[in-house]
Design a binder for these strands. Structure first.
Length: 218
DNA sequence: AGCGAGATGAGCT
DNA sequence: GCTCATCTCGCTG
């Protein structure tokens, strides 16, 4: 039931397969007091290392910022963007092969009240409930889920085999239809912008953006 | 229910 | 200076 994913899951060299297989996995980030806060992964994107124009490591640019992407699979890469947000990635493959999978959306499973609080959904009495504060917006995007799960630079480089953040298999998440499309927000990436490297759980309401799918599979 | 703008900072693609 | 693997609010009709 609560089986942590084996390290071999991340060490595979087929990053696209990992991005697909991450759909339906449970992402767990406990609080400091050990309370479980978790969500099912419903949207991912693959970033294929130094030959991928959309990847931070494109062209072999190895810097302090993306250093973790060069580590062995099974680590966590967190970066800061747009002056306000963090994004969570899973490092894949062997060392010195900077492939990652971006976690773009999860569906809340455990600790939903904690997520509401972190996202500012528990407004003062009398405050008007707006559409933007409905639960559907808790974790439906890469920046949102990092706020809800309290993910920031302090877990950059953590191992998924540790006790700060990890992934679990859940039987009830096995039956999933997968949609495939273009990655979001990387129009600068030339030909690579059109590649089918975004994966999401079909019709799941927590997927970040309604976009055309290139194909569907099981 | 869809668009435009502003927020905000680190690394220069 | 400008660009970003983004989000939210406020305006529209």
């Amino acid at each position: 039931m609560n089986a942590k994913l084996d390290q071999n899951f991340y060490l595979r060299t087929d990053t696209v397969a990992i991005a697909r297989d991450l759909l339906g996995k449970l992402l767990v980030v406990p609080t400091e007091t050990g309370e479980r806060v978790s969500g099912m992964i419903v949207e991912t994107e693959a970033y294929l290392g130094e030959t991928d124009r959309a990847a931070h490591s494109f062209g072999g640019r190895r810097t302090a910022r993306n250093e973790v992407t060069y580590w062995e699979g099974g680590h966590v890469y967190v970066f800061f963007i747009y002056g306000m947000y963090y994004q969570l990635n899973v490092v894949c493959g062997e060392a010195d092969s900077p492939h990652v999978v971006l976690i773009r959306a999860v569906e809340p499973v455990e600790g939903i009240e904690i997520m509401r609080e972190r996202r500012g959904f528990l407004s003062e009495p009398g405050a008007i409930a707006t559409w933007s504060r409905r639960d559907q917006n808790l974790t439906s995007g890469p920046g949102k889920l990092c706020i809800a799960l309290d993910i920031d630079r302090s877990i950059n480089g953590e191992e998924l085999s540790g006790n700060r953040i990890w992934l679990e298999d859940r039987k009830q998440f096995l039956d999933i239809e997968i949609s495939v499309g273009k990655r979001i927000g990387i129009d600068y990436a030339g030909d690579d912008a059109a590649r089918p490297l975004r994966f999401w759980v079909r019709d799941n309401p927590f997927v970040s953006k309604p976009r055309l799918e290139i194909s569907t599979e099981n």
